[in-house]
Design a protein around this nucleic acid. Structure first.
Lengths: 192, 192
DNA sequence: CCTCAATGAGACAAAGATGTCTCACATGGG
DNA sequence: CCCATGTGAGACATCTTTGTCTCATTGAGG
C-alpha cells in the first residue's frame, strides 16, 4: 500500500546486505551469489529479489562506495587549512570505507570497455584537486603529478586495508602508515 | 630420442605463451582459457596440451613471476651501498615484471586458505630485509615497519603499472614516481 | 483469527567454462 | 616419398553459476 519504492516491511536491511557482501567480496572477489547470500544471512532467492543479478549487486556496491567516499571527502573539508592536514583528514574519514573501496578499485579494472560510473571521475577530480592545491601552496613537490598521487592514495588505502586484514599491519596504525608514507613522498623536502 | 621432459620440436614457445597470458590476465583476470589461447596465437586444445588446466597455467605464471622477481632482486644487489640506492635499483630492475607482479599479487589475495608459494615468503623477506637495513643504517624512519614498506612497494608497483597502462602516468616516469614517493615517505626527514 | 507480504527451500532450464576426445592438416626429418 | 609429431578445429559430456519459477512457512497488522 505504500507509495514508496521500498516495501514498508523490510526484513532484510538492504544496507546491511551490501555491507556483508562488500566484506565477503573484498576477501574473495569471485564469491558466488549463493555465498554472498549466506554471508548476509539470507537465501539466494531473497538476494535475487533485492538485486536483480550479480551485476546489479556490484552496481549497488559501487553506488554505496561512491556515496561513502563522497561523504568522507565532504567530512574531510579538503579545501580548508593546509593540504597536509586535509590529506590526514581524508585518510581518517575514508578508513571505514577502505575495504569496500579496495574491492571496487580492483573490480573497476576489468570494466575495460564499459563507461565507468561518473562518480569515480568526480572523486578523482576532488582528490587530484587537493594535491594540486598542495602544490600551489608550495607544500607538495611538483614532480609528482596529482593524478599519480591520487592513484597512489587509492593503492595505499587498498594495500593498507589488505595488510591490516592479513595481520601484517596493526589496525590502529592504518592511518599513520598511509599518511606518513604518502605525505613523506609528496611533501617538498628541505634539501640538507 | 630425447630424454628431456619436453619434446625436441617446440612449435609453441612456452615462455612466450606465459608472457602473453600474463599480459592478458593482468588486464582481465577472468579471461577464459580460450581467450588466453587466442591471445597467445594458438588454439585452446594446444594450450591444454601445454598446461593441464587453468590452475596449472596460473601456477606456471606464479613460477615465472617469482623467478623474474628473484632475478630482479639479484640484479639490484640489495646488500650493496646505501639502502636508498638499492631501492632505486630494485624498482628499476623489477619494472619489466610489474604487470605480471600486479596480477599475481591480486591473484594471491584469493588463495585464502591454501598455502601460498614459498617463493613469495622469500621475496618478502629479502625486500623487508632491505628496509630493515635502511633503518639500521639510519636512512629510513623506524615508525614505518619493513612489512608495511614492503607491502607499499608492491602496491605502488601494481598501481603504477596500471596507471601507466591506463595512460594516467607516462611510462618513462614509472620508476621516478614510485621511487620518489616510496623513498620520500621512508626516509628520515630533517626536522625543520 | 485472517490476510498478506516476505522469506526459505528447492526444482528447473539456460549459459558459460572446462576438460577430453577424435579427426584432419601440415611440416620437418629420415 | 613416407611417417611422425605438433597443431587447429570441432564435438561432446560435465560442472558451476545464474536466473526464474513454484510452493510452503512465518510473522506482523488489521
Amino acid at each position: 500500500m505504500s507509495h514508496m519504492g521500498y516495501p514498508r516491511l523490510m526484513s532484510v536491511d538492504r544496507e546491511q546486505v551490501l555491507r556483508s557482501a562488500a566484506a565477503l567480496l573484498t576477501r574473495k572477489s569471485t564469491a558466488t551469489m549463493d555465498e554472498v547470500a549466506r554471508a548476509a544471512g539470507l537465501s539466494r532467492a531473497t538476494l535475487h529479489r533485492h538485486f536483480a543479478g550479480r551485476d546489479a549487486l556490484v552496481r549497488a556496491l559501487e553506488e554505496l562506495g561512491i556515496q561513502e567516499c563522497e561523504a568522507a571527502l565532504d567530512a574531510a573539508r579538503l579545501d580548508e587549512g593546509s593540504a597536509d592536514d586535509a590529506v590526514r583528514r581524508l585518510v581518517k574519514e575514508i578508513e571505514p570505507a577502505a575495504g569496500l573501496l579496495s574491492f571496487l578499485v580492483t573490480e573497476n579494472q576489468l570494466f575495460e570497455g564499459d563507461t565507468q560510473h561518473e562518480g569515480w571521475a568526480r572523486l578523482d577530480a576532488r582528490i587530484a584537486g587537493l594535491f594540486t592545491r598542495g602544490q600551489e601552496r608550495g607544500e607538495f613537490r611538483i614532480d609528482l603529478t596529482p593524478a599519480w598521487l591520487t592513484e597512489a592514495l587509492y593503492c595505499l588505502i587498498g594495500g593498507g586495508a589488505w595488510a591490516v586484514q592479513d595481520g601484517r599491519v596493526a589496525a590502529k596504525d592504518f592511518q599513520h602508515m598511509i599518511v606518513e608514507l604518502l605525505l613523506g613522498g609528496a611533501r617538498r623536502r628541505v634539501e640538507p
